Simulated assay, not measured.
Amino acid sequence: MAVLSPPKPSSDEGRIPRRVAFSQKRGKWDVKLSPYLYISPFFILFAITGLFPLLYTGYVSLFEWGLLKGKGDFVGLDNFTEVLNQPHFWKALRNTFSIFLLSAVPQVVMAITLAAILSANLRAKTFWRMGVLLPYVVAPVAVGLIFGKLFADESGLINAILTNIGIDPVRWHVDVLPSHFAIATMVNFRWTGYNTLIFLAAMQAIPRELYEAAIIDGAGRLRQFFSITIPQLRPTLIFIIITSTIGGLQIFDEPRMFNTTGDGGSSRQWMTLTMYLFDLGWGPQKSFGRASAVALLLFVIIVVIGMINFLVTTKIATSGPAKAKKPKSRNSTNRRTR
């Protein structure tokens, strides 16, 4: 009679569980936490230099806050009410939007045009591409001083040229619209080259196969530009329009340096919101509470206009040709006829 041997213990029984090494735990922590550590410096810096000043500005706007006296009585929304009742605020808001429209729209058009020219087969491409960026390097104070002399009412170069061709001199520092046009010219001089290089980089990323197919189909350069280049630049256009809106509504250097006094004109005909804010905080009134109220109002205006631009441009960018209706099969038509 055969004797049955006892069953052998399985390999898993009696095995002592191994502890996970600290290096392995550290590796898992590194994979999970390292992305947050890499982006944390930006958010920490933003919280210190961006979020905290914004919140503190809102806190100051609720008090009667002076330059020498410091924090005063709590006034709530009285600073906002008093600012909105001031005619200078609405005049500054009008000037800001007028200068913004006169500078942003031509700036985008000229930037796209220059980028298309620089994208062509030109000799010394690097030289011309560096040349369009040179005005951006010039300090805004220097640009304001130079253009302030060019657009001088009596001894300016622009009026001298107009006089030689038989046109009456323009009162650049007196009339509203000419002063806005002159300041918009400064802005376009500085920022057109910067936006041109952004558009040029986006144009270089467009697949060449699209242009080759268009050439085979017989499309000319103008048709290629409007049918291929512009649609491919829609995401870049969204970026340029939003950044131009934020920068255009915060314009300060160019109108500040347009004349020697820096007060926005005798009747404040080119005073912007940022200049009005500066005048409230450091001018004769020295009211940080009202200046903070203007800063918050400007922040809300920029956010609203930026969101409108984003929604409109995104809708334009995502809108495509209408989907063609699916043709009906023969079986279904035969069934209906039967």
Score class of each variant (00 low, 15 high):
P7T: 13
K8N: 14
K8T: 15
K8Q: 15
K8I: 15
P9C: 13
P9E: 13
P9N: 12
S10A: 12
S10E: 12
S10T: 13
S10W: 13
S11A: 12
S11Q: 10
D12S: 11
D12C: 04
E13V: 06
E13H: 06
G14S: 08
G14W: 05
R15Q: 14
R15L: 13
R15T: 10
I16T: 14
P17E: 12
P17M: 08
R18L: 13
R18D: 08
R19N: 14
R19E: 13
R19M: 14
V20Q: 15
V20G: 11
V20D: 11
V20T: 15
A21G: 14
A21L: 13
F22Q: 14
F22D: 15
S23P: 03
Q24T: 12
K25T: 09
R26N: 02
R26G: 04
R26K: 07
G27A: 08
K28R: 08
K28V: 12
W29E: 01
D30A: 10
V31E: 06
V31T: 06
K32D: 01
L33M: 10
L33T: 07
L33R: 02
L33A: 08
S34E: 03
S34N: 09
P35I: 02
P35T: 05
Y36A: 08
L37D: 03
Y38Q: 06
Y38F: 10
Y38D: 01
I39Y: 03
S40C: 08
S40M: 12
S40L: 14
S40P: 03
P41I: 07
P41E: 02
F42V: 09
F42E: 00
F42G: 04
F43K: 13
I44Y: 01
I44K: 03
I44R: 04
I44Q: 00
L45W: 02
L45H: 02
L45E: 01
F46N: 07
A47G: 11
A47M: 09
A47D: 02
T49E: 00
T49H: 00
T49Q: 00
G50F: 04
G50H: 05
L51E: 03
P53Y: 08
P53F: 09
